[in-house]
Design a protein around this nucleic acid. Sequence first.
DNA 1: ACCTGAACACCGTTCAAGT
DNA 2: ACCTGAACACCGTTCAAGT
Lengths: 224, 224
Amino acid sequence: MAQPAKRAETAKRVKGATPGTGRRAGLDRADMVAKAIELVEAEGPDALSMRRLATELNVATTTIYWHVGSRDELVTEIIRHQSERLAARPIKGKKPRDRIMSAATHIWESSIEHRAITSLAHQAGSSSLLQYPFEVVLATELEAAGLVGPEAALALQSIRATVTGFLVLALRDESSIPRDRRTTAVWAASEAELDRSTLDALATEPDLNKLFEITLQAVIDNHL
Amino acid sequence: MAQPAKRAETAKRVKGATPGTGRRAGLDRADMVAKAIELVEAEGPDALSMRRLATELNVATTTIYWHVGSRDELVTEIIRHQSERLAARPIKGKKPRDRIMSAATHIWESSIEHRAITSLAHQAGSSSLLQYPFEVVLATELEAAGLVGPEAALALQSIRATVTGFLVLALRDESSIPRDRRTTAVWAASEAELDRSTLDALATEPDLNKLFEITLQAVIDNHL
DNA sequence: ACCTGAACACCGTTCAAGT
DNA sequence: ACCTGAACACCGTTCAAGT
């Protein structure tokens, strides 16, 4: 595992470039989280393993444990980072209704933009963690719209559920879905009763962006 | 690994009771899926591993591969089974609006009833597969309500997203969520601006059943 | 304080071999 | 046709040991 060649490399003292033989790696928790995010965005959520990340950082696997703690903590940290990036987007609009819509749309867009991280959060069952900062921003706007206490909380949950649901639909892995829907007994039985145009429409991928907008608007208005 | 004692066991010829030494296990694909479902419902989605299932079946791990194919196929089969159970529930109501609501509520209830399997589907990114039979049932009701072609397909997607979103909220693993929400910078910054009663309401777990109902109704009506 | 190698207890999957 | 053991290439995590 030693690295006899490339002495120049060591001279450079680039962060993390010191091979395993050296004592100090010079990396901290933040560096590891950053590299983890990089890994996930480049190769998807499944590429994130402690061993893989260690290799990427030129460090022993156990070093990560020293700085980060565990895989769970690493994932939590990644999500936290992403959710802060998310909350930083400025909300547009004058009327409360528009501002609420704007805030919700930000999660939708940002989550799709960083789909790998969203999937990671989703896989870890912490999609809600991703939305904490969003919660507080949204709650503020809901209060501005006149909703307080339980009313605000309920509205927030509805909006959150709607956004989450559309995200699941938008990010689901198509490859994991078998083509042969109609193998199911139920499908075969009822298929005949459906209109041809409906069947065609069901088979084509819908434009979720548009649908998200009109559905979310209805959900919001339901509370105002 | 031999099992010298318990010769009576072999005499019984109970399905799957023949120890590893014997040649025939007498198990088929269906038996394995059934046992897998049992395992998941008893110990949660993470308990389902090929090795663990093999032990449970008194069979070598590789035997499962012969019958089922792979872990992915096993999971798909489990979900298919569950979704058929789901579609079997009779839809109530006379008016199309009520029947649509009833169909959607069935997934909600059944998915929560078998939360372990729902989580498994969710983890595997195949929550949609779980809803195929539901799709066709719902599409039929939507047509009865006068929606055809793209209109029916869009309504169906909205409803699907809403149900999925609420399920994610309802089934998320509370243990994986850290208690210290307020560590986030954003939260700390905006917290002060929120009403005390709103903060309290956000902290308490909402009754999702009721909220699911009123939100779903709004989403449905938005398309009718 | 920071980092390492070795080891433990798991995974999914393949494959040649047995009956 | 059905089932096995051994092996490959991975996991997350712990722990005693090094500097």
